Each structure stands twice: as C-alpha cells, then as structure tokens.
Computed example of a mutant assay.
Amino acid sequence: MFPPRYSNPDYWKESGIIQEARFQTSLSGGKGGQNVNKVSTKVEIYWSPSTSAVLSEDARARVLEKISSKIDNDGEIRVTCDTSRSQLQNKKTAIDKLSILLAFCFKENKPRKASKPTHASVKKRLESKKIQKDIKANRRKGNYE
C-alpha cells in the first residue's frame, strides 16, 4: 500500500517535513549550571499533519489514525527535547524523534504465526489442574472413607 521508504526515518528527515515544522526554544531545567539560566536549550517542534503539503491524502489519514493520541487540540504534533546542554544537539534529537514517530506510522506488522504450546507447558498446566482438583476434592463433605 505505502512504499517501504515511508518506514525509514531518514526518508522523513529529507522529505520536507522539517521545512513545514515550527521550532520554538525555551529555557531548559536540569544540569548545566548558569548555562541553564541564560541559554534557551530546550527545543520544541510543532508540526501539523492535517495541513502538510508533503503527505498524500492516504498518508495523512494513516498518520492521523496511528498517532491521534499525540495530536493536540490545535491539530499539531509536539515533540520536545531538552536532554543536552546544546540547543543544536537538542534540535537534531527532536528532528530524529519526529522522523521516527512518522516512520512508526507506516511500519507494517508481521502477521502472527500460530504456534502450539510446548510439551512441557502442557504437562505443567495439567499437573497444576490435578493439584487443584485434589485440593477441592478434599474439601467435599462426606469424604470420610
């Protein structure tokens, strides 16, 4: 249905999604000493799949269906990163997160192959049933023989 390249995060980095995204920086908490108080290292990416020119109608529907829980009231996906002390590194990490999220939408799950339970698991299940049967049989009234 969709080309296999859609499930590759590198494809989404080069597809033009980043040009449609809106970047916002802010002060980040955590490690960094005085750097935390002075430099805006936290990076947030806002991207709206419903208005994207890069996505086809089918791809847009797939993205909206798969990651509907990550879309806010404005119809945007928000990805944040504040792990590094560098704004540039956080920006790269946030772009990676967004591209992995989009690639996840197009990943095809392998069909599950039905398998039989192992001999040991069947034996263990039957043994536990026998123990439970004996416990309940000992509780019965009139079993004084």
Rank of each mutant, 00 (worst) to 15 (best):
I67H: 14
V79D: 08
L88S: 04
R22P: 02
C81I: 02
G29Y: 06
P111W: 09
R125T: 04
D72Y: 03
T93N: 09
G30I: 00
K107V: 00
K123W: 06
E76M: 08
K136E: 11
K42M: 06
D96R: 09
Y6R: 12
K13I: 00
Y46I: 01
K66S: 14
V36S: 06
N37Q: 03
L64Q: 12
C81T: 02
F23L: 11
V39A: 07
L98R: 05
T51L: 14
K123A: 08
V79L: 13
S28Y: 04
Q89D: 04
A53T: 13
A94H: 06
D58N: 13
A61D: 12
R5W: 02
P4D: 13
S99H: 04
I77E: 12
F2C: 14
R125I: 08
D74P: 02
N143G: 03
V122R: 15
A103H: 14
K133V: 02
K141G: 04
N37E: 02
S86V: 02
D82T: 01
G33R: 12
A103C: 03
Q24V: 01
C81M: 06
K13N: 03
M1R: 13
D82S: 09
E108L: 12
R22Y: 12
G142D: 12
K92V: 01
R125M: 09
R60D: 11
E76Q: 07
R140W: 06
K141Q: 11
G142L: 02
Q34A: 03
G32D: 10
K113F: 10
R85L: 08
L98H: 05
N35R: 07
E44A: 00
V79T: 03
V54F: 09
R85A: 09
G75C: 07
D58A: 10
K13Y: 13
L126Q: 14
Y46P: 00
F104Q: 14
K42I: 00
Q24K: 15
V63L: 08
P4F: 05
R22A: 00
